[in-house]
Design a protein around this nucleic acid. Structure first.
Length: 303
DNA sequence: AAGACGAAAGTGGTTGA
DNA sequence: TCAACAACTTTCGTCTT
């Protein structure tokens, strides 16, 4: 935990929990998520060796992807090159340069707007800086590939953010993205899939555990319950109960069971709302958990 | 009255011929 | 390209606390 974070601004407690490298810091007493903007802990630009990525890859001094005008200006027809060509080639070159000029100014205009929107949504969701940067990078690549055409700028921004969250294991639900950006949930999902597929971005299925701290905090559950939920979750994963299921539903059900066991009962509806799933899904997961993990006794005992 | 439960029908995405 | 399919949702009636 960064040493300049000492106590919770809400209740003044120093009992803070730093959750891994997820950029999340949680107050154990009042449950406030402090979500510090952590240092950029990952620098893996490798999977993206598209031509564009090659061309605009950072070299030399660090730059940032959240500025719209970094380095993608005209790079056709730089001084020197052009005089090496014969007149025929030279004409072609001028045309190319003109074309690229148009495109790049269009791109820049788009980026300027889009990155402002991206910043707005990211700060609304209190996302760490590293995620914002990643999203900006994804968006930039998407614009350069012309993937935004036919789609609203905002939806691509939302999709890029969603992808960036997933990559950094700080998952937000589609509902949250939807609320923050005002874009329909399905639309975000669609552009997210489209963009990641087109850019060849590989995203691991999100791990239910990543959702636990945030859900637990939103429900004001105490830390024991939270760790109990994680414990249950791990058992569930070992029993192959989790594959193919929506991660949020599993996380929600684990929390629900953990809360029951620890005598901190929450209604299915409360948990469902926080997790963005329905009660029915919670029930289904919950039933499976009880059956396969033989937790029944523990739950009964508390009643 | 509220919460939990479960059946049934509907939705959108994936997969495989 | 289309149909089967799995997961999840919506809706609604019934049971439990």
């Amino acid at each position: 935990m960064p040493n300049y974070i000492k106590k919770c601004p809400e209740c003044g407690s120093i009992n803070l929990s730093h959750h891994k490298e997820k950029g999340e810091i949680i107050c154990r007493d009042c449950g406030l998520v402090l979500e510090e903007k952590m240092v950029d802990f990952e620098q893996e630009w490798r999977e993206f060796d598209s031509e564009q990525a090659e061309r605009v890859r950072r070299t030399g001094a660090p730059s940032t992807w959240t500025k719209f005008d970094r380095g993608l200006g005209t790079d056709i027809g730089q001084k020197g090159d052009i005089y090496k060509l014969e007149s025929k080639g030279r004409n072609k070159f001028f045309r190319l340069r003109k074309w690229q000029y148009r495109v790049s100014t269009a791109i820049e205009r788009n980026l300027k707007l889009a990155l402002a929107e991206l910043k707005r949504v990211a700060s609304y969701l209190k996302l760490p800086k590293s995620v914002e940067e990643e999203a900006a990078r994804i968006y930039t690549l998407a614009v350069q590939r012309g993937l935004v055409r036919g789609r609203s700028m905002e939806s691509v921004v939302a999709g890029a953010l969603y992808a960036a969250c997933r990559r950094h294991e700080v998952p937000r639900t589609l509902d949250e993205l939807s609320e923050a950006s005002g874009i329909d949930k399905k639309e975000i999902g669609r552009t997210y899939r489209f963009v990641t597929r087109e850019l060849g971005i590989r995203i691991l299925p999100s791990n239910p555990v990543d959702y636990i701290p945030r859900f637990a905090s939103a429900l004001r559950l105490n830390p024991d319950t939270q760790s109990k939920a994680v414990e249950i979750l791990e058992k569930a994963q070992n029993s192959e109960l989790t594959s193919g299921r929506g991660p949020t539903g599993i996380a929600a059900a684990s929390l629900y069971v953990a809360a029951l066991i620890n005598g901190e009962k929450k209604t299915q509806r409360e948990v469902a709302d926080v997790a963005g799933v329905t009660e029915v899904t919670i029930r289904n997961r919950y039933k499976e958990l009880l059956k396969k993990l033989k937790l029944k006794d523990q739950v009964k005992k508390k009643e």
